[in-house]
Design a protein around this nucleic acid. Sequence first.
DNA 1: GACAGCAGTTGAACGTGTTCAAGAAAGGGT
DNA 2: ACCCTTTCTTGAACACGTTCAACTGCTGTC
Lengths: 225, 225
Amino acid sequence: MGERPRRARGEQTRQLILETALRLFRERGYTETTMRAVAKEAGVAVGNAYYYFDSKEHLIQGFYDRNQAAHRTTAAPVLEREKDFAARLRGVLHAGIDVNEPYHSFAATFFKTAAEPSSPLSPFSRESSPAREAAIAIFRDVVEGSSAKIDPELRKELPELLWLGWMGVVLFWVYDRSPGQRRTRRLIDGIVPLIDRLVGLSRLRVLRPALRQVLALVDSIRHDD
Amino acid sequence: MGERPRRARGEQTRQLILETALRLFRERGYTETTMRAVAKEAGVAVGNAYYYFDSKEHLIQGFYDRNQAAHRTTAAPVLEREKDFAARLRGVLHAGIDVNEPYHSFAATFFKTAAEPSSPLSPFSRESSPAREAAIAIFRDVVEGSSAKIDPELRKELPELLWLGWMGVVLFWVYDRSPGQRRTRRLIDGIVPLIDRLVGLSRLRVLRPALRQVLALVDSIRHDD
DNA sequence: GACAGCAGTTGAACGTGTTCAAGAAAGGGT
DNA sequence: ACCCTTTCTTGAACACGTTCAACTGCTGTC
């Protein structure tokens, strides 16, 4: 009956282990959840978990993907409704925080593993590439669906720059210990108008050389030649 | 003969362990260096290392302090010689990278522990406060020793903002996999003129409201009220 | 000079993430 | 029916960071 009769068994075990792990992470926290506990709770041997997941960190990838999808869903109504660039950006950023809010303490503890450059969980790693592209796509939507007049050269780079800015906001959020992370909310509300103004200014003739310089810098840094 | 006859012995062991650890970190990398190896190489028992350092991570604090001092020393000649703001800033940033260069691979692995918000090694933690103040002091020197005319309100905040920017550069450097981290060098060379120009513009009447807005944002985010 | 107290030191032991050789289960081909 | 390959599963074993109860040796006190 299943889609892939041959693989059904393995896939089932994989899901079982993943579900169990995420549940325990939520209940006890990441560090406090041992691989032995995951295996025991799932009713398999510890080695079996390592057959499906290269490491404990790799279990978090599932969390990533889930939140990624939730971000898009939560942001959708705003992107549907608003046409103003600032409103769109603001909506998407707040939506991102909304989605992650329940996991703030959990995120703070596992963040250290994601921060390691060589980690597959790093937002810049090759293994996160699909998730990263999906995230950038949201910001491409922010830009392309907006009524703002934007310099064409900037428009091309803007989604990725906004995503980078979003990573900065997330970084701030992880460190934000204020109740309900309201400082992060203030940061968003404060910085969006500034970005909006800058983007608006991008079409001015006078600022063309400066813009070119910035874009050239971004480009020279991105590729290593 | 020593300065503190009573404490001489303990302090000596402490230094020995720290020296050995940092050497092994440099030679083999952080993760690859085991506490057992440090102890053996230093000729002491494992438990002894834990008598002086709460954890393996805490050994990095010594690295922090040392590099902090080295940064100041390396930057001193430039600050002595140059009076131009851009030249001073550029010199200090490159000096910082120079000092950290030998530890790049090591830094990348230990960075994950520093990134955890609750870690005492976090640059924003209370325990790093002295090191942080010392680092900001360098940028205060950059600002105050320069010939640049800077808006007074900005001048007050600029050292901390430059330090924050420096943290950003370090973050980029940690992720920089290009040979000799030349992309980081390019980032510095590219971004310093931009900052210089912005700082120069800060005195313009027209931009006064925008500057005020930015400073207000920074202030409202810093304190949680 | 005996003693108490404390800084300094030891290494076995614990719990952790991870590995691996071995085996079980499930098909597919003949 | 038989084997052979591939997929899946096992749990003991390994190396690591860390802890801790026990021990050593120094130093100031009487």
